[in-house]
Design a protein around this nucleic acid. Structure first.
Lengths: 352, 352
DNA sequence: GGCGTGTGATAACACGTGTTAGTAAAACGA
DNA sequence: TCGTTTTACTAACACGTGTTATCACACGCC
């Protein structure tokens, strides 16, 4: 079976030239003077022999692996991360492949453990790194910083000093709440996606405040509840809000998953969405359109996140282009039925 | 910044031995006679210098990359594949990392295009391959077969001659239908997940027939409808069944996604699940538990699929152990409310 | 004829490691 | 004391490629 591999030496012999010439031709080396005749002979020989350069030999001498790492940190909202992994990965891959890079994926369950992923760098397996869900207790990031290794964060980590790509959470939350205000609501609650120490959570809360302030609606501490990634937390938080003397007429839930619990809590009280309470979520998880009623939400551009991070990394590696410290991607409001902007009607199946 | 990398030569010099000795010590070469004293000196020097062997140099000489490829073929049911990607990937990674392998992920949008992914093999970037969602029009599989390259299929491709790991679709469907029968149903419809040429679809249909046959229930052609991956197809198919003179009292839908369309169709007719019609799905997609009513379904062991495929591949690569031609993983019936086995009750949020 | 000058190609080194064959010294047996 | 074996280690090659410095040669010019 596995017959010996064809090397550039074989190509050289078949074409009747030296190995150097083969290398020059196949790599299109700029300064090299090669006659058209020789070039053709080399290309023909390479094609006929089915020559493919050995990646290991190549990276050994060039000191470049043409591979990047995608490290997935296990954060408390792992479900959320997992939901977007395929899209993010596709976005990264769609940029990396044309640029000639491969993607090594490394899920890391515990960043505090020694050698969680840094061996990829130290063994020189990768040229750059995209780190999804960075954590402040990551022991290896400082070391990478010191080495000057190219790292892009997917998500934010204040003070880490690495270029970040993230969603514009403030703006996303703002347009969601603006929408509720435009529908006539003035008493609007918020249930966050996570405890306030998470930057994403803090930013979405800030967007909420901005929208209220822009319309002169006073901020009411009582209308703020904190979720913690799960539907259960949404269920509980919504019950709190419903227990108020003067409950809100609309709720902005900063996470679709949490919003599912919210919907359940409202239903269990015998109330109807959006007739009694309007709900807007955040993320546009796939199932958002299948719950009852279909959830109005803010789309998180997962594919674009991957794409952008990859593009920035490629520019960094290939052109030495300094990456921007922070890139925020725009969101988009997806209006369905839970906000009350659309009259209830028949279910329209997605065709195809 | 990026200071020169520490090589094994540096370690040798610091420890006052030859490079060969360093290699022997760090790799624990069996036959090598090294004194305890020397071994300690080498290990100390390596530690102090922060030595990590260069992966490229290592694979160049050893002809092994200690990397495997995970190729994701774009099949028509891409959404389905994407839904399970995180779990499959974790399963693979959890086996591969302890075994000392990395995972290179390559999404392929078009397997018929030349060099869709075979360059990974030809450039000798990987030692083995896990191919998810294999397709019969894949032009590169035969070439890999001929080369004797280690490939594991995730899913089945009859006649491909590669070892496969898949779910036991026949058995999964059988227990689902058995369950409906045990609840007293005798007029049970089926809506497949895909057209019959897909092996998964054919197998699930076969499990349906087996269950009926085991209980002497005649097979009725009219109760069979074919879905094609989407909710829309489920919506349409269910309407067909509901339009029958004598409609079924229960439906086995061989895909959760399709089942969501089925639930909608039933609801739009003003009927109730499970009171009027019982529904059982297949896959146990994450959102199955959030629809109304929560969907009884057959769990597809995604994590275990990845784990098993990875384990078989590792055994193949490391121990030369011949992989089994076909490994079928057991499924499990997850009973929720859509089948009617559980009395309707309050929503119980998942805590945590 | 000697001398730059550009053209087309190559010899030789470097990359960092695993491994085979071999060696020097020590230990051992008679 | 002199082979013989064992111990502890190393010189040298191989892996397959990119790249620098060099070379042979033809050509035109004074």
């Amino acid at each position: 079976m596995a017959r010996r591999k064809v090397t550039s030496y074989d190509v050289a012999r078949k074409a009747g030239v030296s190995r150097t010439t083969v290398s020059f031709v196949l790599n299109n080396v700029p300064g090299a003077r090669i006659s058209e005749e020789t070039r053709r002979r080399v290309l023909k020989a390479a094609r006929e022999l089915g020559y493919f350069p050995n990646a290991a030999a190549r990276s050994l001498v060039s000191q470049k692996t043409r591979t990047i790492g995608l490290v997935l940190c296990q954060t408390p909202d792992q479900v959320f991360h997992d939901a977007f992994l395929p899209e993010v990965l596709h976005g990264i891959s769609d940029v990396m492949r044309p640029a000639g890079y491969r993607v090594l994926v490394e899920p890391v369950e515990d960043v505090t453990r020694p050698n969680a992923y840094i061996d990829l760098v130290l063994e020189q397996r990768i040229d750059g790194l995209i780190l999804s869900g960075p954590r402040s207790d990551d022991a290896e990031l400082p070391q990478l910083k010191e080495e000057g290794f190219p790292v892009i964060l997917l998500g934010q980590l204040p003070g880490a000093g690495f270029p970040s790509v993230d969603v514009d959470n403030v703006e996303g939350a703002r347009i969601a709440v603006e929408h509720l205000i435009s529908l006539g609501h003035t008493r609007i609650g918020i249930i966050t996606n996570a405890p306030p120490q998470y930057t994403g959570s803090a930013h979405r809360l800030e967007g909420y405040r901005l929208a209220l302030a822009a319309h002169g609606i006073p901020f009411d501490e009582n209308l703020v509840c904190y979720g913690n990634f799960t539907e259960g937390s949404g269920y509980r938080a919504m019950n709190e809000l419903l227990g108020l003397a003067n409950p809100p007429t609309a709720v902005f839930v900063a996470s679709d998953l949490v919003a599912f619990g919210v919907l359940a809590a409202i239903r269990d009280r015998g109330l109807l969405v959006p007739r009694d309470i309007a709900v807007v979520g955040f993320d546009d998880v796939r199932m958002a359109r299948y719950v009852t009623p279909p959830l109005t939400t803010v789309r998180l551009p997962a594919y674009e996140l991957g794409q952008t991070a990859a593009q920035i990394l490629v520019n960094w590696l290939e052109k030495g282009k300094e990456p921007p410290k922070l890139t925020l991607l725009p969101t988009e409001l997806v209006i369905r039925k839970s906000c009350g902007a659309i009259r209830p009607q028949e279910f329209l199946p997605i065709s195809g």
